[in-house]
Lab assay of single mutants.
Amino acid sequence: MSIQHFRVALIPFFAAFCLPVFAHPETLVKVKDAEDQLGARVGYIELDLNSGKILESFRPEERFPMMSTFKVLLCGAVLSRVDAGQEQLGRRIHYSQNDLVEYSPVTEKHLTDGMTVRELCSAAITMSDNTAANLLLTTIGGPKELTAFLHNMGDHVTRLDRWEPELNEAIPNDERDTTMPAAMATTLRKLLTGELLTLASRQQLIDWMEADKVAGPLLRSALPAGWFIADKSGAGERGSRGIIAALGPDGKPSRIVVIYTTGSQATMDERNRQIAEIGASLIKHW
């Protein structure tokens, strides 16, 4: 067993022997301040990774656009098919120029040779490549099948209805392509620590998230040296922004954090800054 596999296998073990965790309302004060600064709703939840206990939450059962955070769930569904012998990570998928959609920095470079399922998941999570996500959605049967996968996990809230990039439209009061912070946090925890996926697939999923290259201005910008984070960000229309993450000190994750916002007129930089400040408060009061 590799060191990384050992780390993920012992996530519940280490967490069980940690000192009790206590909620700190100071972080919620910052979440509410972010709402004021952005002029928009902000949803927040913080779960203990081992027990699933909610440590703090704000608007945990209000719907927010998922945006690209759905790509972690998508690759979880792909990995479940791999575990069941219905898919192979090494299978190569070929596609054409007509398949390319807006923001496809990886797939646009491989029109000639195609990409493997493993490479597509890596591109979808680490670079948020939209064509990679659409190609992977095709392998599982489309958005409705991802929703069905989530329902089978016990998540009857999260739903995907459309493809990239239309799913980022974020129309107010439109339930399409949305989740709730509580539902997303619980589902992410199941994917990373539950028995739904094999140990190898859980490790692969967290490795992809740990290698995320496009979430630097968010929670990662607030992390002290030595902290662990595996995350996936999302951005959408109407001032929408979000991030889902597993993080913790001492090089291992111990909490799940989900943050979503929508309806702001603020710039992307300002949305990023507010999420980073929430992260800084979380870490300060850990």
Rank of each mutant, 00 (worst) to 15 (best):
I45C: 00
K213C: 03
G39T: 07
S128M: 14
V72Y: 15
K284I: 03
T27M: 02
L73D: 14
N152V: 10
R241M: 06
E35Y: 02
A183Q: 08
S264M: 02
R159I: 00
V78A: 08
P172R: 07
E35H: 09
I256P: 01
K109M: 14
M180G: 07
D129N: 02
A215R: 07
I93G: 03
R92M: 07
E270F: 04
V258N: 05
A266C: 11
D99G: 10
W286T: 02
H94T: 06
I243S: 02
V214Y: 13
D33G: 02
M268I: 02
A34E: 02
V42I: 13
L219T: 07
S221H: 11
A182Q: 12
A185Q: 12
G85R: 15
G154D: 13
S51R: 04
L192E: 03
L160T: 01
T139H: 04
V31P: 11
Y95V: 05
Y95K: 11
P172E: 10
E237M: 12
L47C: 11
T116L: 08
A276N: 13
A132I: 02
S221Y: 04
L47G: 04
A235S: 02
K284M: 05
A77D: 00
R176G: 10
A235L: 02
G142S: 05
H94V: 06
W163H: 12
Y95G: 02
L49W: 09
P143I: 03
V157E: 03
P181A: 06
L79Y: 15
P60Y: 12
L136E: 12
L74A: 14
S128D: 15
K190V: 15
D174T: 04
L49C: 09
M67Y: 13
A230S: 12
R273S: 10
T179L: 10
T198V: 12
A211T: 05
I54S: 14
A40N: 02
A182D: 07
Q37L: 11
N173G: 11
A182F: 10
L160A: 08
V157G: 11
T186G: 07
A200R: 13
D250A: 05
E270R: 11
A230Y: 14
I206D: 13
P143M: 01
V101A: 06
F58E: 01
D83K: 06
T139W: 07
S281C: 08
H94L: 13
P65N: 01
Y95L: 01
A124Q: 05
S68N: 02
L135E: 02
T193C: 09
V214H: 15
V258T: 10
D33R: 03
C121M: 01
Y44P: 01
R271S: 04
V72W: 09
V42H: 13
L150T: 14
L74P: 10
G234V: 02
S51P: 01
Q274D: 11
L191H: 10
A133D: 05
G85F: 14
M180W: 03
A230G: 10
S96G: 00
T187A: 11
M115D: 13
D269L: 05
L79W: 15
P25K: 08
Q86D: 14
S254M: 08
K30F: 14
A170T: 07
L38G: 04
L247G: 10
H110S: 01
G279S: 06
E108L: 00
M66L: 02
M115N: 15
S254L: 06
V257E: 04
M184T: 12
S264D: 03
T131C: 13
T138V: 12
G141S: 03
A235N: 03
L218Y: 08
P172K: 12
D33I: 06
D48C: 03
Q37M: 11
S254W: 15
L146H: 13
V42R: 04
D177T: 12
N130W: 15
Q37A: 13
V78H: 10
T187P: 14
M153L: 05
E26T: 15
D174C: 04
A123M: 15
L205W: 04
G142Q: 10
A215H: 11
T186M: 11
H285N: 02
T138K: 14
N173S: 10
R255T: 05
A84V: 10
A170N: 11
E87P: 14
K252P: 08
T198D: 05
T69A: 04
A133Q: 01
M67D: 15
L55C: 10
H110E: 10
V101H: 05
F149N: 08
D36E: 04
R255Y: 13
G39W: 14
I275P: 14
S254Y: 09
G279D: 08
L282I: 11
R81H: 07
V257W: 03
S201V: 12
T139Q: 14
R41C: 15
L188F: 13
I243Y: 13
G39M: 15
G141N: 13
H24K: 15
A222F: 14
A170L: 09
T193Y: 02
L247Y: 14
D161N: 12
V29R: 04
K30V: 15
T116S: 11
R255F: 04
L191Q: 07
L111V: 01
E164W: 01
Q203R: 09
L73H: 12
M268H: 03
D36V: 03
E210W: 11
L197S: 07
R91V: 02
T193S: 08
E145F: 11
A182M: 13
P165S: 02
A170C: 13
M184G: 07
T267I: 09
E277G: 08
D161R: 04
K284N: 09
A123C: 15
L146D: 08
L100K: 03
S281D: 10
L150Y: 15
L219P: 06
L205T: 04
M209P: 01
T112D: 01
L199Q: 09
Q88D: 05
I45E: 00
Q86K: 06
L218R: 08
T262V: 12
L197T: 06
N272K: 00
W163Q: 12
G114E: 14
E277Y: 13
T69L: 06
R92H: 01
T138I: 07
R273G: 08
L38F: 00
A266D: 11
L89V: 02
D231I: 05
R255V: 09
L199T: 11
I229H: 05
N152Q: 14
T126S: 09
C75E: 15
L282T: 11
G251V: 09
P105R: 04
C75P: 09
Q88I: 08
H24D: 09
A235I: 03
L160N: 02
S264C: 01
Q97F: 14
G141R: 03
S96C: 00
D161H: 13
K109G: 15
E108D: 01
D129M: 00
S68L: 01
L137R: 15
G226S: 11
G239Y: 14
G114S: 06
E108M: 04
E62C: 00
E175T: 13
C121F: 07
A200W: 09
Y260V: 05
S68F: 15
V106M: 14
E61W: 03
R176T: 10
W163L: 11
M184F: 10
S51Q: 01
A245T: 11
I45H: 00
M115L: 13
R255P: 02
L247W: 13
D155S: 05
L223K: 13
D212Y: 03
D48T: 13
V101Q: 04
S128F: 06
P65Y: 13
R91S: 06
G141E: 02
G216K: 15
S254A: 02
G39N: 15
D174Q: 02
A276L: 10
E46V: 12
F70L: 03
G194E: 10
S221D: 15
T126K: 00
A132V: 10
N173M: 05
S264V: 03
L160K: 03
I206M: 13
G43Y: 03
M209N: 13
Q265Y: 08
G216E: 00
R81W: 08
A40V: 10
L49Q: 04
A124V: 11
T138E: 06
A185M: 13
S57N: 13
M268K: 03
V29A: 08
M67V: 11
Q86H: 10
L89W: 06
D231T: 06
A235P: 01
G248C: 04
T131H: 08
D250M: 02
Q203W: 02
T186N: 02
N130H: 15
R202K: 10
K252Q: 03
N272Y: 00
P172M: 14
R220Q: 02
D207R: 10
G248W: 05
R118F: 14
S68P: 01
G234A: 05
V29L: 08
I45N: 00
M268T: 04
K190Q: 14
G39I: 10
Q97P: 14
G263N: 14
D177C: 10
V257R: 01
R189T: 11
E61Y: 02
K109P: 15
V82C: 07
G248D: 10
P224T: 03
F149M: 10
L218C: 15
A225H: 08
I229W: 02
K53Y: 06
P253K: 14
M67F: 12
R59N: 13
L47Y: 06
N134Y: 09
R241K: 08
H151C: 07
F149T: 04
S254F: 02
G239Q: 05
E145K: 02
L188K: 01
S128G: 02
I243Q: 05
G142M: 02
S233P: 07
N173C: 05
